[in-house]
Design a protein around this nucleic acid. Structure first.
Length: 490
DNA sequence: ATATGGAGGGCACTGCCAAA
DNA sequence: TTTGGCAGTGCCCTCCATAT
């Protein structure tokens, strides 16, 4: 079927998907010979982080299978940007992941996991996104390349996607990956995304949805067929409803955070109105999603990567230099859900100005433009003034020791004493947890010293708050933190 | 135009066995 | 033990014949 030799890789990349399952792709030494050992990469982390996609992309046409769609979204959820020093352009990093881990995430079963993963990765390179607006249209291929070597696949998204998928649209949508990966039908996935995007880009829909009110929106037949990539399929409308819309809405209602039903216009004024579907969407009250607060609540998840992603999604790449400040503010709010939701998300949605500057103005009610401004409450409570004083004295002692070491050593100037941002309520809360577990201030200072000595900070876990996290602290004290060369970042 | 009940092809999933 | 091949099963997706 496939000729042997150097032509093979070329053939695979240009092959029509229908034939890809018949390819003999076992000769990895030929196909992947160009993968060098020292290729830098960002490890693909398999958690439940959200991902962002512009509404232009969501409402466009994405013809691909269910598994391909899931893999694409896993990749989107893991995007990390780096700045090319020469061109000053931002590029998306390639990802590497063990085949086993990827198969697990994609819920692939059976024993030929390597072939299944290989097949879906290769077929993804043949896929594209298509968006049309009036008489303009755009098509993007998804992948730059896919490589495999020694149990690890390396995937790189097409760098041009960063504008289309991430930045171009005024609106973007954030979803939790977990729900997306649960769908068993590709139509469910796409219709769900479209509904969320349409709610997200309309202010009154958004408000109603967040207030658990029922949202009514209409989608034309044409639009729905674009979204589901069924424009030339299901010529009988009834079939389309029966086999696409109805099952998809059923699955969405069963699995996701929303309930959806639909109806058609029973009394059309004009003939064209026959093509209109009316969707009725309600928020499942018990399900808090998608929620940036939840994402940021854990210090383990407030990563630079995620903030970068939000910045790109809101076209605020310039603010990347202020990630630490943003993170600091997040930490300040992190125990106050109302303040966080109202203030931070407001800033995110009103990114007319510099996002950083705008967010940083929020703590001052006088300068905040947010009409619903909520001043965050004190985050730590004590029985009496005396216990409060003892705690804050202890905190100052630890904090000053941290800064003393930072000033004397070469850790990083971001830990210098001028950066009082680390003296946040969150840090205080974390310290309180440590003290409550019976760990003495002296032991904590010893931990700072050990961390400082042990190259720990080189492994990107270099914030005061991270250090004070009980779990992280214990692992440092037990010397469990190891520098793994396969997990270095740029 | 709406509704019913499929066929059939392929996708997703599973288990068994062989090979390395 | 890990990985790959393969066949069987059931579901997803699409299309169609027929009836109301």
């Amino acid at each position: 079927m496939v000729s042997q030799g150097k032509k093979m890789s070329e053939e695979i990349l240009t092959k029509d998907l229908k034939n890809s399952d018949k390819l003999n792709t076992n000769d990895k030494s030929i196909i992947f010979s160009s993968l060098s050992d020292d290729t830098k990469f960002e490890p693909l982390k398999l958690d439940n982080r959200s991902f962002a996609m512009s509404n232009n992309a969501i409402l466009g046409c994405q013809p691909m299978t269910l598994v391909e769609g899931k893999l694409f979204r896993i990749l989107l959820s893991q995007i990390t940007f780096f700045k090319d020093e020469k061109t000053l352009e931002y590029e998306m990093l390639p990802y590497r992941i063990k085949v086993q881990d990827l198969a697990k995430k994609l819920n692939l079963k059976g024993n030929s996991l390597y072939n299944q993963v290989q097949d879906v990765c290769i077929s993804l390179t043949t896929r594209h996104i298509f968006a049309k607006k009036n008489d303009e249209w755009e098509v993007y291929t998804l992948m730059s390349y896919v490589k495999y070597k020694k149990g690890v696949v390396e995937l790189k998204l097409n760098n041009d996607l960063k504008d289309f998928v991430y930045g171009l649209g005024e609106y973007f949508s954030i979803y939790q990956l977990e729900s997306i990966l649960s769908f068993r039908s590709k139509h469910s996935l796409r219709i769900y995304e479209a509904i969320k995007a349409k709610i997200g880009q309309n202010k009154s829909f958004r408000t109603m949805f967040n207030n658990n009110e029922t949202v009514h929106l209409s989608i034309t037949d044409k639009e729905l067929r674009d979204i589901t990539a069924t424009i030339h399929k299901y010529k009988q409308t009834y079939d389309f409803k029966k086999n696409v819309i109805t099952p998809a809405l059923k699955e969405i209602t069963n699995i996701s955070d929303i309930n959806v039903t639909y109806d058609i216009d029973k009394n059309p004024q004009k003939k064209g109105d026959l093509d209109l579907y009316f969707f009725e969407i309600s928020n499942k009250a018990s399900y808090s999603f998608p929620n940036i607060y939840e994402i940021f609540k854990s210090s383990d998840i407030v990563t630079e990567d995620y903030i970068k992603k939000l910045l790109f999604a809101t076209k605020k790449e310039k603010d990347i230099n202020h990630i630490e400040e943003i993170r600091s503010l997040v930490e300040k709010y992190v125990n106050n859900k109302d303040a966080f939701d109202k203030n931070f998300i407001y800033a995110l949605n009103h990114s007319k100005y510099s996002l950083t500057g705008y967010i940083l103005s929020i703590p001052d009610k006088n300068t905040s433009k947010n009409p619903d401004f909520i001043k965050p409450d004190p985050l730590t409570t004590f029985d009496n003034d005396e216990s409060s004083k003892i705690f804050y004295d202890t905190f100052d002692e630890i904090f000053n020791y941290w800064n003393k070491l930072a000033n004397e050593n070469i850790i990083s100037d971001t830990h210098g004493i001028e950066h009082v941002k680390y003296k946040t309520k969150k840090s205080q809360r974390l310290l309180k947890n440590l003290l409550d577990e019976g760990i003495s201030p002296d032991e904590i200072k010893k931990g700072i010293h050990i961390a400082n000595e042990s190259l720990y900070f080189l492994n990107n876990h270099n914030s005061f708050s991270y250090f004070l996290n009980a779990e992280n602290f214990k692992s440092i004290m037990n010397n469990e933190e190891k520098i793994d060369s396969t997990e270095q970042r740029f």
